[in-house]
Design a protein around this nucleic acid. Structure first.
Length: 426
RNA sequence: GGCGGGUUGCCCGAGCGGCCAAUGGGAGGGGACUGUAAAUCCCCCGGCUCUGCCUUCAAAGGUUCAAAUCCUUUACCCGCCA
């Protein structure tokens, strides 16, 4: 990892993690010394998702380069709602919901930073700590006075909303709160750099203005491009919804598969953006990938590294084993019970009591939740996408027999090419 | 405050008394081809105890043998005039 500031910036640029910054020369100069920087995460859901990982890992890159990272969890801003990039007003969440999400996200964010590092230990902050004690009058006199409505209206996040039908005073005020966060972190920790997605540019420079006006101080802004996929679809979304970092919300198996199934056209870019591998290592993978894309070496490296970072190396190994065991190579019936059990542990599942009659394939699949209804499961059978233990089955009434249960316990249902579920006989 | 227009399945959007579970596009799903990729082609896409039945066209009531389609009220959105 680059430790010299010019190398750090060059590395970020090479990885496609550099959108724009305030005076780049001055930034490089400032980064020659350990610098305190922050990124904010608003609790808009119970977990962060893979989209957040881009900036979160960027923060880690800075720490590895010797800087002091602060992860700010937006206990206050999460109550307000950032209009950036939204075409409609957000619906507000209650304060207990937001408070609960803050705690979960605080825990998540902490996994990616080093709090023991010397001399640049990471910190986690919550903007509710300094926003909540502030009275409305103080806020308007001490902070609001420094903002020009003309400039606020000119911000992209606001002007696009004005065109799209309107914005509430609440969301309009968001940029003031975010600016105040930067000011507070500047005061408390001499934090002089804020990172964010490119949609955060306006909010970040508003903070720099505030620091200049109130403290006559200066700082820097650096934004990271929003990650785009080659086919134009939104990164991090699947039919099932977002890919979350929380293992309860997106299983490590599904997480691993998500990366393994990355579009060929995206895989090298994703390695640059997410991986901590060196440029040389990534370029070697690029070469391998171009020579034999079918081997999916680059995909596998990406999936392995991210699953290890987000979950753990141990979980990653288990999940990869499951992935290999369940996909084609080798007969399922040849797997020993331990391997099978751990592979299936990662899948959506249902159970059948050993005394009870065994339900039909359709009923079992519906019970695992892989499809929304029995009609959907029936459709799969009709269309020829139904498999039991990797063997195609037909007939809507098809039901597994006792003897179909591998090791006397497990049956593997498959829908289409890659959607798997497990049935356990208990 | 007055007048007019709108609210349809995951999204966009036709339908404007029976032939409507509702045209078309997108998203999504299955198949073929492949590499657990992309592109392409074919098929599917409310639910169920599935040759039939049930619940949907903002909500609630009504007219009719029959309503997404007509009437009334309510909620929300959007225009024009004050």
């Amino acid at each position: 990892m680059a430790t010299l500031s010019s190398e750090l910036i060059a590395d970020l640029k090479w990885r496609g993690l550099f959108s724009q910054s305030t005076d780049e020369k001055a930034l490089v100069e400032a980064l020659k010394k350990p610098t305190t920087l922050y990124i904010g995460f608003d609790p808009t859901a119970p977990s962060l998702h893979v989209g957040n990982l881009v900036v979160l890992l960027a923060l880690r890159r800075f720490q590895l380069a010797g800087h002091i990272p602060i992860a700010l969890v937006g206990g206050a801003t999460g109550l307000i709602g950032d209009p950036s990039g939204k075409s409609e007003e957000r619906s507000l969440n209650t304060s207990d919901v937001v408070a609960a999400w803050v705690e979960r996200i605080r825990g998540q964010v902490s996994k990616y930073l080093d709090f023991q590092a010397k001399p640049n230990a990471a910190m986690v902050a919550n903007n509710l700590d300094w926003t909540s004690p502030l009275s409305a009058i103080e806020f308007l006199r001490d902070i609001g006075k420094h903002f020009s409505v003309n400039q606020m209206l000119a911000k992209d996040s606001v002007s696009s909303r004005l065109e799209a039908g309107g914005i509430s005073y609440t969301e309009f005020s968001y940029q003031v709160l975010q600016s105040y966060d930067f000011l507070e972190l500047y005061r408390r920790h001499n934090c002089t750099l804020q990172l964010g997605g490119s949609d955060q540019w306006g909010n970040i420079v508003a903070g720099l203005d505030l620091i200049r006006r109130v403290e006559s101080g200066s700082g820097h802004a650096l934004t990271i491009p929003l990650l785009a996929k080659a086919d134009g679809s939104k990164f991090g979304k699947t039919a099932g919804g977002a890919i979350w970092l929380d293992a309860e919300m997106t299983s490590p198996y599904a997480f691993f598969q998500y990366w393994l199934n990355t579009d060929d056209k995206d895989v090298i870019n994703f390695l640059k953006v997410f991986s901590f591998k060196s440029r040389a290592e990534i370029e070697a993978l690029e070469k391998t990938h171009n020579e034999n894309p079918g081997a999916r070496e680059a995909h596998r490296a990406l999936a392995r590294e991210l699953t290890s970072i987000v979950h753990s190396e141990d979980i990653c190994n288990r999940v990869e084993l499951a992935s290999r065991a369940l996909f084609g190579q080798g007969e399922l019936s040849e797997l020993d019970e331990a391997t099978l059990a751990s592979a299936l542990a990662e899948l959506p599942r249902t159970t059948v009591k050993s005394g009870d009659p065994i339900p039909t394939w359709v009923e079992l699949l519906a019970a695992t939740g892989v499809v929304d209804s029995k009609s959907a499961a029936r459709r799969i059978v009709k269309e020829g996408g139904a498999y039991l233990n990797n063997t195609k089955i037909s007939g809507e009434d098809f039901a597994p027999e006792k003897s179909d249960f591998l090791c006397g316990k497990y049956a593997v249902l498959r829908k289409g090419k890659r959607d798997l579920a497990a049935v356990e006989l208990i």
